[in-house]
Amino acid sequence: MATLPPTVLNWQSVFNMYLVLGVSGAIFAYGLMFFYILNGRRKSSTGGMGVRGGGRGNLLTLIVVTGIVIAAFIAGVEGNSFMWNSPQNLPTLTITVHAYQWGWNFTYPNGYTSTDTLTVPANTTVILNVTSEDVFHDLGIPMFDVKADAIPGQWDALWFVATQTGIYPYAIRCYELCGVGHAYMTANLTVLTPSEFSFWYAHHGST
Protein backbone atom coordinates (compact mmCIF):
# COMPACT_ATOMS: atom_id res chain seq x y z
CA MET A 1 0.00 0.00 0.00
CA ALA A 2 2.82 2.36 0.74
CA THR A 3 4.16 2.42 -2.78
CA LEU A 4 4.62 5.76 -4.46
CA PRO A 5 2.11 6.92 -7.07
CA PRO A 6 3.18 5.95 -10.62
CA THR A 7 3.38 9.57 -11.76
CA VAL A 8 5.82 10.26 -8.94
CA LEU A 9 7.90 7.19 -9.74
CA ASN A 10 8.06 8.25 -13.37
CA TRP A 11 9.02 11.79 -12.42
CA GLN A 12 11.69 10.62 -10.04
CA SER A 13 13.28 8.25 -12.53
CA VAL A 14 13.77 11.11 -15.01
CA PHE A 15 14.76 13.52 -12.24
CA ASN A 16 17.37 11.16 -10.85
CA MET A 17 18.99 10.74 -14.22
CA TYR A 18 19.09 14.51 -14.77
CA LEU A 19 20.42 14.95 -11.25
CA VAL A 20 23.30 12.54 -11.88
CA LEU A 21 24.13 14.21 -15.19
CA GLY A 22 23.78 17.68 -13.73
CA VAL A 23 25.75 17.11 -10.57
CA SER A 24 28.59 15.36 -12.35
CA GLY A 25 28.67 18.09 -14.98
CA ALA A 26 28.71 20.75 -12.29
CA ILE A 27 31.47 19.02 -10.33
CA PHE A 28 33.54 18.72 -13.50
CA ALA A 29 33.02 22.38 -14.41
CA TYR A 30 33.68 23.74 -10.91
CA GLY A 31 36.68 21.41 -10.54
CA LEU A 32 38.19 22.54 -13.82
CA MET A 33 37.59 26.16 -12.96
CA PHE A 34 39.21 25.99 -9.54
CA PHE A 35 42.10 23.91 -10.87
CA TYR A 36 42.87 26.55 -13.49
CA ILE A 37 42.48 29.41 -11.03
CA LEU A 38 44.75 27.87 -8.40
CA ASN A 39 47.23 26.83 -11.06
CA GLY A 40 47.05 30.25 -12.71
CA ARG A 41 47.72 32.01 -9.40
CA ARG A 42 51.05 30.20 -9.09
CA LYS A 43 52.31 31.18 -12.52
CA SER A 44 54.83 33.97 -12.72
CA SER A 45 53.71 37.26 -14.14
CA THR A 46 56.64 37.44 -16.52
CA GLY A 47 55.27 34.83 -18.87
CA GLY A 48 53.76 37.38 -21.22
CA MET A 49 50.49 37.04 -23.03
CA GLY A 50 49.67 33.44 -23.79
CA VAL A 51 47.86 32.66 -26.98
CA ARG A 52 45.39 29.84 -27.00
CA GLY A 53 43.96 27.92 -29.91
CA GLY A 54 41.12 25.82 -28.72
CA GLY A 55 39.01 25.06 -31.77
CA ARG A 56 39.61 21.34 -31.26
CA GLY A 57 38.96 21.53 -27.55
CA ASN A 58 35.63 23.22 -28.20
CA LEU A 59 34.78 20.58 -30.79
CA LEU A 60 35.47 17.92 -28.18
CA THR A 61 33.15 19.73 -25.73
CA LEU A 62 30.54 19.87 -28.48
CA ILE A 63 30.71 16.14 -29.17
CA VAL A 64 30.66 15.05 -25.52
CA VAL A 65 27.87 17.46 -24.57
CA THR A 66 25.77 16.51 -27.59
CA GLY A 67 25.92 12.89 -26.47
CA ILE A 68 24.84 13.78 -22.95
CA VAL A 69 22.05 16.02 -24.16
CA ILE A 70 20.68 13.35 -26.49
CA ALA A 71 20.62 10.90 -23.58
CA ALA A 72 18.75 13.47 -21.50
CA PHE A 73 16.32 14.08 -24.34
CA ILE A 74 15.56 10.39 -24.75
CA ALA A 75 14.96 9.98 -21.02
CA GLY A 76 12.69 13.03 -21.11
CA VAL A 77 10.69 11.68 -24.05
CA GLU A 78 10.12 8.37 -22.28
CA GLY A 79 8.94 10.17 -19.20
CA ASN A 80 6.64 12.36 -21.30
CA SER A 81 4.90 9.47 -22.99
CA PHE A 82 4.23 7.86 -19.61
CA MET A 83 2.81 11.15 -18.34
CA TRP A 84 0.67 11.75 -21.41
CA ASN A 85 -0.92 8.25 -21.55
CA SER A 86 -3.09 7.19 -18.66
CA PRO A 87 -2.79 3.50 -17.64
CA GLN A 88 -5.48 1.25 -19.05
CA ASN A 89 -5.20 -1.61 -16.54
CA LEU A 90 -6.98 0.16 -13.67
CA PRO A 91 -10.55 1.36 -13.20
CA THR A 92 -10.94 4.94 -14.34
CA LEU A 93 -12.77 7.91 -12.88
CA THR A 94 -13.09 11.04 -14.99
CA ILE A 95 -13.80 14.33 -13.23
CA THR A 96 -14.40 17.68 -14.86
CA VAL A 97 -12.75 20.72 -13.33
CA HIS A 98 -13.89 24.29 -13.95
CA ALA A 99 -11.41 26.82 -12.62
CA TYR A 100 -12.73 30.24 -11.73
CA GLN A 101 -11.59 33.35 -9.89
CA TRP A 102 -10.78 31.99 -7.31
CA GLY A 103 -11.48 28.36 -6.82
CA TRP A 104 -12.05 24.98 -8.41
CA ASN A 105 -15.31 23.33 -9.27
CA PHE A 106 -15.04 19.53 -9.45
CA THR A 107 -17.89 17.82 -11.29
CA TYR A 108 -18.30 14.04 -11.01
CA PRO A 109 -19.92 11.84 -13.71
CA ASN A 110 -23.11 11.56 -11.63
CA GLY A 111 -23.44 15.35 -11.49
CA TYR A 112 -22.18 15.86 -7.95
CA THR A 113 -20.08 19.01 -7.62
CA SER A 114 -17.69 20.21 -4.99
CA THR A 115 -15.63 23.39 -4.73
CA ASP A 116 -13.40 22.80 -1.74
CA THR A 117 -12.48 19.13 -1.80
CA LEU A 118 -11.60 16.63 -4.47
CA THR A 119 -12.53 13.14 -3.26
CA VAL A 120 -11.03 10.23 -5.17
CA PRO A 121 -10.61 6.47 -4.69
CA ALA A 122 -7.15 4.96 -4.22
CA ASN A 123 -5.59 2.71 -6.85
CA THR A 124 -7.83 4.13 -9.53
CA THR A 125 -6.81 6.17 -12.53
CA VAL A 126 -8.29 9.58 -11.91
CA ILE A 127 -8.49 11.79 -15.00
CA LEU A 128 -9.09 15.49 -14.53
CA ASN A 129 -10.39 17.40 -17.55
CA VAL A 130 -9.61 21.00 -16.82
CA THR A 131 -10.89 24.26 -18.23
CA SER A 132 -11.39 27.79 -17.00
CA GLU A 133 -14.42 30.03 -16.82
CA ASP A 134 -12.53 33.33 -16.79
CA VAL A 135 -8.74 33.74 -16.83
CA PHE A 136 -5.69 31.53 -17.17
CA HIS A 137 -5.18 29.23 -14.16
CA ASP A 138 -3.08 26.14 -13.62
CA LEU A 139 -4.13 23.15 -11.56
CA GLY A 140 -1.22 21.49 -9.81
CA ILE A 141 -1.04 18.64 -7.33
CA PRO A 142 2.57 18.62 -6.09
CA MET A 143 2.19 15.31 -4.24
CA PHE A 144 1.60 13.57 -7.59
CA ASP A 145 3.93 15.78 -9.69
CA VAL A 146 1.12 16.59 -12.11
CA LYS A 147 -0.16 19.87 -13.54
CA ALA A 148 -2.54 21.11 -16.20
CA ASP A 149 -3.22 24.64 -17.38
CA ALA A 150 -6.83 25.77 -17.05
CA ILE A 151 -7.35 27.83 -20.18
CA PRO A 152 -10.62 29.54 -21.07
CA GLY A 153 -12.14 27.85 -24.11
CA GLN A 154 -9.78 24.86 -24.04
CA TRP A 155 -9.79 21.46 -22.37
CA ASP A 156 -6.57 20.24 -20.82
CA ALA A 157 -6.16 16.94 -18.98
CA LEU A 158 -4.01 15.19 -16.42
CA TRP A 159 -4.14 11.83 -14.68
CA PHE A 160 -2.88 10.37 -11.46
CA VAL A 161 -3.24 7.29 -9.31
CA ALA A 162 -3.35 7.83 -5.56
CA THR A 163 -1.76 5.01 -3.58
CA GLN A 164 -2.20 6.25 -0.04
CA THR A 165 -5.52 7.02 1.58
CA GLY A 166 -5.89 10.11 3.72
CA ILE A 167 -6.97 13.74 3.87
CA TYR A 168 -4.52 16.17 2.32
CA PRO A 169 -5.33 19.82 3.05
CA TYR A 170 -4.31 22.30 0.35
CA ALA A 171 -2.98 19.52 -1.86
CA ILE A 172 -4.34 21.27 -4.93
CA ARG A 173 -3.07 24.73 -5.81
CA CYS A 174 -3.18 27.26 -8.63
CA TYR A 175 0.18 27.76 -10.34
CA GLU A 176 -0.60 30.70 -12.63
CA LEU A 177 -1.12 34.23 -11.37
CA CYS A 178 -4.84 34.81 -11.80
CA GLY A 179 -5.61 37.97 -9.80
CA VAL A 180 -5.81 38.99 -6.17
CA GLY A 181 -7.15 35.63 -4.96
CA HIS A 182 -4.33 33.58 -6.49
CA ALA A 183 -2.81 32.66 -3.14
CA TYR A 184 -6.12 31.36 -1.81
CA MET A 185 -6.99 29.26 -4.85
CA THR A 186 -6.47 25.92 -3.16
CA ALA A 187 -8.49 22.77 -2.64
CA ASN A 188 -8.17 19.75 -0.40
CA LEU A 189 -7.71 16.22 -1.54
CA THR A 190 -9.35 13.21 0.11
CA VAL A 191 -8.26 9.74 -0.93
CA LEU A 192 -10.60 6.93 0.13
CA THR A 193 -10.31 3.19 -0.35
CA PRO A 194 -12.33 2.06 -3.39
CA SER A 195 -15.09 0.62 -1.20
CA GLU A 196 -15.29 3.73 0.97
CA PHE A 197 -15.40 5.78 -2.18
CA SER A 198 -18.30 3.73 -3.65
CA PHE A 199 -20.25 4.33 -0.45
CA TRP A 200 -19.40 8.04 -0.45
CA TYR A 201 -20.17 8.39 -4.14
CA ALA A 202 -23.55 6.69 -3.79
CA HIS A 203 -24.53 9.16 -1.06
CA HIS A 204 -23.37 12.24 -2.97
CA GLY A 205 -25.08 11.59 -6.26
CA SER A 206 -27.14 14.02 -8.24
CA THR A 207 -30.34 12.72 -6.69
Partner: peptide, 17 residues
Protein backbone atom coordinates in the same frame (compact mmCIF):
# COMPACT_ATOMS: atom_id res chain seq x y z
CA UNK B 1 21.98 23.01 -15.23
CA UNK B 2 18.65 23.67 -13.53
CA UNK B 3 17.54 25.04 -16.90
CA UNK B 4 18.10 21.63 -18.41
CA UNK B 5 15.68 20.18 -15.86
CA UNK B 6 13.06 22.67 -17.01
CA UNK B 7 13.50 21.54 -20.62
CA UNK B 8 11.69 18.25 -19.98
CA UNK B 9 7.87 18.42 -19.97
CA UNK B 10 7.68 15.54 -17.50
CA UNK B 11 9.82 17.39 -14.96
CA UNK B 12 8.04 20.65 -15.75
CA UNK B 13 4.88 19.04 -14.39
CA UNK B 14 6.38 19.70 -10.98
CA UNK B 15 8.19 22.94 -11.77
CA UNK B 16 5.79 24.99 -13.89
CA UNK B 17 4.76 28.17 -12.09
Amino acid sequence: ITGLFLAAPVLDAAYRG
